[in-house]
Design a protein around this nucleic acid. Structure first.
Length: 469
DNA sequence: ATGTGC
C-alpha cells in the first residue's frame, strides 16, 4: 500500500478505487514501519458509505477484525452513513479507569506484599465465568440500561465517581432488548471480572508530571500511588458483536451496500439493523462501565484494609465505542457516528460535554502501557484532528503465539520482579503472551500522538504491582 | 478481546 508523508507525524494514503475519502495515519517514521501492515484495512474503511474527511489510524495501529485496531472513522448520519460492529471491536467499551490514592509509594512499600496478595484474592480474572456480583432478577436489565450509575445506586461506589466517568457513567439510548439471551447468559456470571489478554489491574506510581496545572486538576502529583484498571464487557460484549455482525452481514445487500471485506459488515445508522446494533452496543457499554465500577470498589476495599488508603476516581474512558457526536466538517456542523476502535476520545478544554471541574483543562485520556513499562495520562487539545481522538496503548507487534514461543511465564515474572514489580498472574502462559517485548514502545506512541497534535502529555505512571488477567 | 472454531 502506497503512502506519502505530509508532516513529521502524518502520512496520507491517496484516495483511489472505491475509497470515498483518503486514509490518514498519525505516526513517526519508525512507527509507520509497523503501521504499514494494516494500511490495507485503513483503505478498506475509507470505502464505507457516508464516511467523511478521512479513514484515520492512530500511532498504535495494528491489524484487527475488519477495521484496524487504532482506527477512527466517522460517517454522516443524515447522508446514508453506516455503523459497523467491526469499527467498535469485539470488546465493546473496553477501556481504562484510573484512581488516585491519598498516599505515596514510600508509605506503601512496607505493606506492598500483603496489598498485592489482597488484590490478587479480590480480583476475579482469567477466561470463563466468575465475577464479583452475580446479578439476579431484573438487575442485569438495570445494569444494561444504567451502567456505573446503577452500580453506584446499588451501593457499589460514590456519587462523585459518576462525575468523573465518560457519559456520567452510563450511555444513553441503550436498548437492553437488543441484547440476546446468549449474551445475557454469558454476562450474568462475569460481572466484576478482568478477563484475560492485556487486561489488568495495576498499582502504579506517578513518576513524572509534564503539566502541573492540568495534573492538579486531574488530582495527580509526583510520587502518588494510583490504581489503573483496564478491562471491558467480557463475553457479553463479545456475543453482542457476533450476533449483530451476523445480522448486518445478512441485511447489507438489501441496502445496496458492498464492502471489500465481509468483516466490515454494516448498515445505515438510521436502518433498523443499525439502530438495533447501537442500542445493544450502548447496553454492552453500560455493562463494561459497571464492570470497571465494581472492580474499582474491590480495589478500594483492599487498599483501605491493607494500606489505610482512600481512592478517588480520576477518570473512566472507553477506547472501543461508536458514538453519535456533532463535529464541524468543511465548516458545517454535522451529526456523525464516530467509530473509535483502539482509539481514545480526547475532548479539548472548553468542550461542553466535560464536567465543570475539567472544562478548563480538557478530558483525561488514559493510556495503559504493558506490564513492565509506563502508562500515561494525556489530555485533549484544541483543534485536535480525527474527531478528537488519540491512541489507546502500546499496540502489539508480536502475536500471542509468537510471544509465548519467544519467552516463558517464569522468565517474564523473574524479570519484572527484578525491576521491583510484584506480579499476580492468572496464568503462566498468559504472562508470556503479554511479555513487554510483544508490544510497541508506549512512550514512542504517546510522543507521536502529541507530535501529531492529537493530545498532550500530563503524567507518566510506572507499575509497582500487577494483577494480570 | 473471546466458554481462543463453523
Amino acid at each position: 500500500m502506497e503512502y506519502v508523508q505530509e508532516g513529521p507525524y502524518r502520512f496520507r494514503i491517496r484516495r483511489e478505487g472505491d475509497m470515498r475519502v483518503p486514509g490518514v495515519v498519525f505516526a513517526s517514521a519508525e512507527l509507520m514501519r509497523d503501521a504499514e501492515k494494516s494500511l490495507e484495512q485503513v483503505a478498506n474503511v475509507a470505502t464505507l458509505p457516508g464516511i467523511v474527511t478521512a479513514s484515520y489510524a492512530m500511532p498504535d495501529v495494528h491489524w484487527g477484525y475488519g477495521f484496524p485496531i487504532g482506527g477512527v472513522a466517522a460517517t454522516a448520519v443524515d447522508d446514508g452513513g453506516v455503523v459497523s460492529p467491526g469499527g467498535v471491536g469485539f470488546d465493546i467499551s473496553c477501556g481504562v479507569r484510573l484512581l488516585a490514592a491519598d498516599c505515596d509509594r514510600r508509605t506503601l512499600e512496607p505493606v506492598l506484599r500483603s496489598l498485592m496478595d489482597g488484590l490478587g484474592r479480590a480480583v476475579p480474572r482469567g477466561a470463563g465465568p466468575g465475577g464479583l456480583w452475580r446479578p439476579g432478577g431484573h438487575q442485569l436489565e438495570r445494569i444494561l440500561a444504567g451502567g456505573s450509575r446503577y452500580a453506584v445506586e446499588e451501593g457499589h461506589g460514590e456519587e462523585r465517581d459518576l462525575w468523573r466517568c465518560e457519559d456520567g457513567g452510563h450511555v444513553a439510548d441503550a436498548d437492553p432488548g437488543q441484547v440476546g439471551a446468549r449474551a445475557r447468559e454469558r454476562g450474568t456470571g462475569q460481572l466484576g471480572s478482568l478477563g484475560s489478554g492485556n487486561h489488568f489491574l495495576e498499582v502504579q506510581e506517578v513518576t513524572e508530571i509534564y503539566d502541573e496545572r492540568v495534573a492538579g486538576a486531574f488530582g495527580l502529583a509526583p510520587g502518588q500511588v494510583c490504581v489503573m484498571i483496564h478491562c471491558g464487557s467480557r463475553g457479553l460484549g463479545h456475543q453482542v458483536c457476533s450476533d449483530h455482525v451476523r445480522a448486518m452481514d445478512r441485511a447489507m445487500a438489501r441496502y445496496g451496500i458492498a464492502v471489500p471485506d465481509r468483516q466490515l459488515a454494516c448498515t445505515p445508522v438510521a436502518s433498523p439493523e443499525g439502530r438495533a446494533y447501537l442500542g445493544a452496543m450502548a447496553a454492552a457499554a453500560n455493562y463494561g462501565r459497571a464492570n470497571r465500577q465494581l472492580l474499582a470498589q474491590a480495589a478500594r476495599r483492599v487498599l483501605r484494609r491493607e494500606a489505610g488508603a482512600r481512592l478517588t476516581l480520576v477518570y473512566d474512558v472507553s477506547h472501543n465505542l461508536a458514538k453519535v457526536e456533532t463535529h464541524t466538517v468543511d465548516g458545517e456542523p454535522r451529526t456523525l457516528c464516530v467509530h473509535r476502535k483502539g482509539a481514545t476520545r480526547a475532548f479539548p478544554p472548553g468542550h461542553p460535554e466535560l464536567p465543570e471541574d475539567l472544562r478548563a483543562v480538557g478530558q483525561p485520556v488514559l493510556i495503559p502501557g504493558t506490564m513492565g513499562t509506563a502508562s500515561y495520562v494525556l489530555t485533549g487539545v484544541p483543534g485536535g484532528d480525527a474527531f478528537h481522538s488519540t491512541c489507546h496503548g502500546a499496540g502489539r507487534v508480536m502475536s500471542r503465539h509468537q510471544a509465548a514461543r519467544t519467552t516463558g511465564g517464569p522468565q517474564v515474572r523473574a524479570r519484572l520482579e527484578a525491576d521491583g514489580i510484584a506480579v499476580r498472574p492468572a496464568s503462566s502462559r498468559g504472562l508470556a503472551e503479554e511479555a513487554p517485548e510483544a508490544y510497541k514502545d508506549v512512550t514512542a506512541v504517546v510522543e507521536a500522538g502529541q507530535g501529531a497534535g492529537l493530545c498532550r502529555k500530563v503524567a507518566r505512571l510506572v507499575p509497582v504491582g500487577v494483577v494480570k488477567g
